[in-house]
Amino acid sequence: MQIYVCVKHVPDSAANIHMIDNRNIDDSVPFLMNPYDEHAVTEAAALKKQIPDSEIIAVCLGKKDAESTLRSALAMGADRGVLVETDDMCDSMTTARVLHAAIIRDGGADIILTGKESIDSEGMQTQFRIGALFDFPVVTNAASLEITNGKARVGCELAGGRTRTYELTLPCVIGAGRGLNTPIYPTFPDVVKSRKKPIETVARSQLNVSDAPGSAKIISMTPLVQKRNPRKIIGTPAEQAAEIIRILRQEAKVLS
């Protein structure tokens, strides 16, 4: 099987984000692989164990330094990486077109794994757009995956503990959710080995990508800070509990 995994290079989830003007963030914070994409790579590695002749190719659209995210994918088990280099912030319509073109240029996919969303732009849609461009079926927020006889049986989570189970024909696109697996934590030898694995860099202009018929562009951005002034609730536990109940009833008016 040819397993493609799309990975994105995003600011560390623990980083505080600051603006340099009203549209761009200060990108000197650490960047890592998008957390949901770690689940996608981990699942790809599990599939390869199950179907030995498989190859895992990690594909990333990003700046030059996104190479470190591809290296992480290689350390986690991908065989090689493709970096489509661009300095532009791409919306999901363009990103899907570029990833689609990069995968076609590289070979044919039997399965394409992505994260269910990226933690920076929170678009939740690139996987569906890739699927539409290939005319492959798509599911998202996958929590279980089983491949038998050219079919994928996928359990997907809706919020609130509800699930949906699908059967997809291959090739297909699967957006990984957190319930899918526990991300591989590469060992030191894995990291060393990954340094010898190839990463091909392709300029975005080298891929013949047609313009999307629409776009989404950030016109302004502001940090979401909610300044709160804590007041103390003191006393014995019983007094504290009574005061909490009073606040819920009289101030927040959420309790009768």
Binding site: E122, G214, S215, I218, I219, P223
Partner: peptide
């Protein structure tokens, strides 16, 4: 108007196209 960076930012976004 939507959140970005996992709820750390609020962004105003311009859409273009025939159907938005």
């Amino acid at each position: 108007t939507t959140s970005q960076y996992s709820g750390k930012m609020m962004a105003k976004i311009q859409l273009t196209g025939e159907i938005l």
